[in-house]
Simulated assay, not measured.
Amino acid sequence: MSRSSGQTTVISQTVARIVVPIILVTAIALLFRGHNLPGGGFIGAVLAVAAFALVYVIFGLDYLQREILGISPDGSGSHRLVESYRWMASIGLAIAVLSSLAPLAYGLPFLTQGVLFLEHLPLYGELEVASAFAFDLGVFFAVVGGLLTIVGEVGNE
């Protein structure tokens, strides 16, 4: 999938430029509402990976590294971006595990959720912060990192 953008149509490139930000905003919205409502880390991550996969298919992995992220590929044929995805998956897994084990330190059952209400915030009023968001965030990073590693490795072939 390291083809140049010259092999795709202008229509597909234009659609990708319009659709990818919409998909990413929806993914983030699902991540933030997941600890109280349906959604969360997994489905938000799958949507985010779909957006990145669309960029890979339309523009190529080299374009994403070079033009979007400013990373120049090394001469070995492997991409440093794929190595970053592996680290993202590992860090996400660590966050999910640690956030699920944290209640055990306080004598509470596994995966017990705590909630903190922040009141009188400027422009926002009241904000509810749930500890389940840390677990959702860990799942999000683990899934995004794992799936993008797969997409990047397959794209390298």
Score class of each variant (00 low, 15 high):
Pro38Lys: 13
His120Cys: 13
Phe32Trp: 12
Ala53Leu: 09
Trp87Gly: 13
Gly77Ala: 05
Glu83Trp: 11
Gly146His: 04
Leu69His: 10
Gly146Val: 11
Ile43Lys: 08
Leu118Asn: 04
Glu157Gln: 12
Glu128Val: 14
Phe140Arg: 06
Arg17Tyr: 06
Ile23Gln: 09
Ala51Cys: 11
Ala134Thr: 14
Leu31Thr: 09
Glu83Lys: 14
Ala51Leu: 07
Arg86Leu: 03
Ser76Trp: 10
Ser100Lys: 13
Gln113Ile: 15
Pro122Trp: 01
Leu111Glu: 11
Leu47Ile: 08
Phe135Asp: 09
Ile71Met: 15
Leu121Lys: 08
His79Phe: 01
Ala45Lys: 03
Ala48Arg: 01
Ala94Phe: 10
Ala29Lys: 11
Val55Arg: 04
Ala105Gly: 14
Gly77Pro: 03
Glu83Thr: 15
Arg17Met: 07
Arg86Trp: 03
Asp74Thr: 12
Glu126Pro: 01
Val129Phe: 10
Phe110Cys: 08
Ser84His: 01
Gly41Ser: 07
Phe52Ile: 13
Ser131Asn: 11
Phe133Arg: 00
Gly138Trp: 04
Ile58Leu: 05
Leu54Phe: 07
Val57Ala: 14
Ala134Met: 08
Tyr106Gly: 15
Arg3Leu: 05
Phe135Ile: 12
Val143Tyr: 03
Asn36Ser: 13
Val115Ala: 09
Arg80His: 10
Tyr106Arg: 14
Phe140Ala: 08
Ile95Lys: 03
Trp87Asp: 13
Ala27Cys: 03
Ala51Lys: 08
Arg17Asn: 15
Val19Tyr: 01
Asn156Asp: 10
Ile91Met: 06
Leu101Ala: 13
Gly40Pro: 03
Val20Phe: 00
Thr112Glu: 07
Pro122Val: 00
Pro109Ile: 04
Leu31Ile: 07
Tyr124Gly: 09
Asp62Gln: 07
Leu127Trp: 12
Gly155Glu: 00
Leu37Val: 02
Gly34Gln: 01
Val15Gln: 09
Leu93Gly: 07
Arg66Asn: 13
Val144Ala: 01
Glu153Thr: 13
Pro103Gly: 04
Ser4Glu: 07
Gly75Val: 12
Thr26Lys: 09
Gln65Arg: 04
Ala89His: 00
Ala132Asn: 10
Ile23Ser: 05
Leu121Cys: 03
Gly152Ile: 02
Arg66Met: 06
Gly145Val: 00
Asp136Glu: 15
Tyr85Glu: 06
Phe133Lys: 00
Leu98Pro: 01
Pro73Tyr: 09
Ser72Leu: 13
Pro38Ala: 12
Tyr124Asn: 02
Val10Ile: 14
Leu69Met: 11
Trp87Leu: 15
Leu108Ile: 13
Ile71Gln: 09
Val20Ala: 15
Gln113Phe: 10
Phe133His: 00
Gln7Asp: 12
Phe140Gln: 05
Gly40Thr: 01
Leu81Gly: 03
Gly77Thr: 06
Ala96Met: 06
Arg86Cys: 11
Ser76Gly: 11
Gly145Met: 04
Leu93Pro: 00
Ala45Phe: 07
Ala29Ile: 06
Pro122Tyr: 06
Val139Lys: 01
Ser78Val: 15
Gln113His: 14
